[in-house]
Simulated assay, not measured.
Amino acid sequence: MKPDLKLVQTNHDVRVLNSDSVHKLSASLGLALRIQSGKQLVFCLGTGTERSNDEALVTWVHSQLLHHGLSPTRQALAFLIVELEKALNRWEMDL
């Protein structure tokens, strides 16, 4: 169940996220889960255009925020930690 979080503000039904906030949230998520530098996560989290785990994580966080209608806030971090752990476990099981 999703926590009660702020919805992303919309502008003509297009969701707009502050890039700096998404990067900060991604960095916090990477730190919380001890994601190391490298390129291993580009395949499972990114679109394939990213050059590092950090870039793949930013792409994934941005996608998740839009998908779930969340703002890049501290409150979203706990939810994203759970979602990322699930995504990585699914990816590991598929190998």
Rank of each mutant, 00 (worst) to 15 (best):
A32Q: 01
L84H: 13
V8I: 14
V8P: 04
R15G: 05
A87S: 06
E50Q: 03
K86M: 07
Q9C: 02
G69D: 09
N53D: 10
I81N: 00
R51F: 11
T47M: 02
K39Y: 00
L17S: 06
D13Q: 11
D54V: 06
D13E: 13
V58E: 11
N18H: 06
H67A: 12
S71V: 03
R34G: 05
N53F: 07
D4L: 05
K6Q: 15
T59E: 09
R90K: 13
T49Y: 15
D4Y: 12
K2H: 11
S26W: 11
A87E: 12
D20I: 08
K24E: 10
A87W: 03
L65E: 07
K39A: 09
L31F: 14
G38E: 03
L5H: 04
H67S: 13
E83K: 10
W60G: 01
V42I: 14
P72Q: 04
S52G: 03
K24D: 10
L77C: 14
T49R: 14
K2L: 11
V42H: 01
P3E: 09
N53W: 08
L7P: 13
F43T: 04
Q64V: 04
W60D: 00
S52Q: 05
K86G: 02
A56V: 01
D13R: 08
L41G: 01
S37V: 05
L7E: 14
L95N: 09
D20H: 05
S52N: 02
R15K: 15
N11H: 12
C44E: 13
R15P: 09
T49H: 11
S37A: 08
L66Q: 13
A87L: 04
I35A: 12
H23V: 05
D4H: 10
L77I: 11
H23D: 04
G69H: 08
C44W: 07
R74S: 05
Q64R: 14
L29P: 03
T59P: 01
R74A: 06
G69V: 00
P72A: 15
V14I: 14
M93W: 11
L45I: 06
M93K: 09
A78M: 12
H67M: 13
R51C: 09
H23W: 09
V61F: 00
K2V: 13
L45S: 11
E55L: 03
L5M: 10
G69K: 00
R90L: 07
S19N: 10
L80H: 00
K39V: 07
L77K: 15
T73D: 04
A87I: 06
K39Q: 12
I81P: 01
R15D: 12
Q75R: 09
V8H: 02
A78I: 03
E55A: 14
N18A: 03
L45E: 01
V58C: 03
